[in-house]
Amino acid sequence: MKAVFLRDLRLAFRLGGGAGQSLAFFLIAITLLALGVGPAPDLLSRLAPGALWVFALLACLLSLDRLFQADYEDGSLDHLLLAPTPLEGVALAKSAAHWLTTAAPLALFAPVLGAMLNLPDAAMGTLVTALLLGTPALSLIGAIGAALTVGVRRGGLLLSLLVLPLYLPTLIFGAMAVRAAAEGLPVLEPLALLGALTLGCAALGPFAAAAALRINLS
């Protein structure tokens, strides 16, 4: 399990760094948003919480389709199926590696991007906390979708159709926490719900993903 985790991390960094790419994606998306809606600071700061979360969702989604597919195609997944580590553990390790290479850097750099969108300083702490608490759920849910579509060639669009509806609760609570912080309202409730969601996904996601992988490998 630890070996799978480290191997995925190494692969992600060797292939041009998943982290760098998703940060660049984030930066471009924010530039596009500002160019699209205009530079008015108050408008941008109102859009910022939702926009940052939506972009985090998309950045996560874009890197999902390779989560299991490379291992499926070259047959290493078949070896992992026979290995003593349960497939659930493999799914969990892969979700964790995915989160560390895509969403975690986003969360740490989010204040910079928030500042570019005029997000009030008071909300920065909550933004980072919410992203750190909520994005693991995105990787865990994404692993279910990636496992379901692992046998489908060019399943990118299908994957987004399957996974994006599952991201709705995370998006709602995450953006709500940041917005509440920007308006000076209490943030404990949405943050607690976000944490609960991540814990629930950590309990459910690896089992569903492993079940889907077993069906695909049978």
């Binding site: 379901l148 399957l162 459910l204 695909n216």
Partner: peptide, 8 residues
């Protein structure tokens, strides 16, 4: 697979 998706 569709059943798993439906349940999740």
């Amino acid at each position: 697979l569709a059943s798993i998706l439906c349940l999740v």
